[in-house]
């Protein structure tokens, strides 16, 4: 079986013009993720975990190395060299990204946030299908019905996260990037996230997740990597 994602010699640094300094993000990273696998990356803050995720999603521009992704649309594609249009397509149809921060349009209700995500990824499904899927996923991820018509700005961390996950999952991504989704959550919310990840895993979703919390990762990941100061150390 071919890897869905293969990172080879990835390096990323940030040059800050004002300060005249270069900050190392990550160096010489090699990781492979097989279809259906959940690979976890651990490490302290600033160790470079997020830089890897953001390089895959192209929020960061890598400086060296390759990120090979086996795309349904484009075949084997090096994401470091993909065009902006290709990345927009992949973000829309194939690669999901969930962080602890909610990325929702202002003045958009929780319901519409998920609905728009459904319509965006599957416009041919039609409004009726998108509504049914939206309601199914909001229920599935336990977002109380009386919150559906509200703006998510006022939601708790756990509620925002569940909304984030619903909006990402409605696209049925082939690859899901989880960027510290449990940071700043209380224990009961963390448990819910764990349940959600287990559900996604059972559904065959391929995931690359980064976490602070080693306890949280226990028994959840198929493979685990540890990072320190930009390098993969284990």
């Amino acid at each position: 079986m071919n890897a869905l994602l293969r990172i080879e010699g990835l390096s990323k640094s940030f040059y800050l013009h004002e300060a005249g300094r270069t900050i190392c993000g990550c160096r010489d990273i090699d990781i492979s993720v097989m279809p259906g696998e959940f690979v976890g990356i651990t490490g302290r803050s600033g160790s470079g975990k997020s830089t890897i995720q953001r390089s895959i999603y192209r929020t960061n521009l890598p400086h060296a190395g390759a990120i090979w992704y086996d795309s349904m649309q484009f075949g084997l594609l090096d994401l470091t060299k993909a065009s902006e249009r290709q990345m927009i397509h992949l973000r829309r149809f194939e690669i999901g990204y969930i962080s602890q921060f909610l990325k929702a349009l202002p003045r958009t209700t929780a319901y519409d946030t998920v609905l728009q995500s459904a319509l965006d990824s599957s416009p041919e499904g039609g409004l009726e299908w998108a509504r049914a899927e939206t309601e199914r996923l909001l229920r599935h991820f336990n977002l109380a019905e009386d919150l559906w018509g509200l703006y998510p700005l006022t939601f708790s961390g756990g509620e925002k996260l569940r909304l984030n996950i619903a909006a990402a999952m409605i696209k049925e991504p082939r690859l899901l990037l989880l960027d510290e989704p449990t940071a700043s959550l209380d224990n009961s919310s963390k448990l819910k996230v764990r349940e959600l990840i287990e559900q996604l895993k059972q559904g065959g979703c391929t995931m690359l997740g980064i976490f602070h919390d080693l306890e949280f990762m226990e028994g959840l990941c198929d493979r685990e990597f540890n990072m320190h100061e930009g390098f993969m150390v284990a």
């Binding site: 940030f14 013009h17 004002e18 929020t59 902006e84």
Partner: peptide
Amino acid sequence: EQGLTDQILEDPQERYTQQLVH
């Protein structure tokens, strides 16, 4: 400089773009 909007905002490459984002 040109790119995906979130990349321009979160990983600006040019001096001026960094000033603008900051």
